[in-house]
């Protein structure tokens, strides 16, 4: 069952003695439903990764970094998790994120999606969907609403969208939300 896009899985492991880009590795690409599950069943669950590691899944050809031309004008819908949620929610939220991407869950706005990233961090894990154009309010808010619904988040929970240009110039905890849903 072919997917609309070919996707690439990237793995980042923080080795402080090496430059950031040396710690980022392309694992493999896939473009069928079957190959997605084959890959998913062979890699470590996100909750089992050590702190400082990331998984990224991006459309093939887009590198999982702000600097990529397809990302630099974009931003991310950011889900921040408490430490406790690593064991209760992290893996299911990440899988749901992956299913949103490969299934093209955002209808015509799926073309705006670049990829998704999960950061495993001692202070709290993060999951984000990256889109390519932060100024495209209609697309960004549609994606945010569908994503929040797919994650099963309560209407009381607010998630924010941050432009990469803002994140790059500030520490992420201080980055202002461009949109919220």
């Amino acid at each position: 069952h072919p997917l609309q896009n070919r996707w690439a899985l990237w793995f980042f492991k923080n080795v402080r003695s090496q430059p950031w880009q040396c710690n980022l590795r392309l694992v493999t690409t896939f473009n069928t439903v079957e190959d997605f599950w084959s890959l998913y069943s062979h890699v470590q669950l996100a909750s089992k990764l050590s702190s400082g590691c990331d998984y990224s899944i991006f459309k093939d050809g887009i590198e999982p970094m702000w600097e990529d031309s397809r990302n630099k004008r974009g931003g991310r819908w950011l889900i921040t998790l408490s430490k406790q949620q690593r064991h209760s929610d992290l893996d299911s939220l990440w899988l749901e994120t992956l299913l949103c991407l490969i299934g093209e869950a955002f209808d015509d706005y799926s073309e705006e999606v670049c990829g998704a990233v999960i950061n495993i961090r001692a202070k709290g894990d993060k999951i984000a969907i990256w889109t390519r154009e932060a100024e495209n309010r209609e697309a960004v808010t549609y994606i945010g609403k569908v994503y929040k619904e797919r994650l099963g988040l309560s209407s009381k929970v607010v998630i924010g969208y941050q432009a990469h240009a803002d994140t790059a110039t500030k520490s992420s905890s201080l980055t202002k939300n461009k949109f919220v849903v």
């Binding site: 069952h1 072919p2 997917l3 609309q4 439903v33 079957e34 997605f36 599950w37 084959s38 998913y40 069943s41 749901e96 299913l99 490969i102 299934g103 093209e104 869950a105 209808d107 799926s110 797919r150």
Partner: peptide
């Protein structure tokens, strides 16, 4: 035609692939 799949369809393949 756009190839989109809902979550139930995608999840249905998880165990088919795992049993292959």
């Amino acid at each position: 035609e756009k190839k989109s799949y809902d979550r139930e369809f995608l999840l249905g393949f998880q165990f088919i692939v795992a049993s292959m």
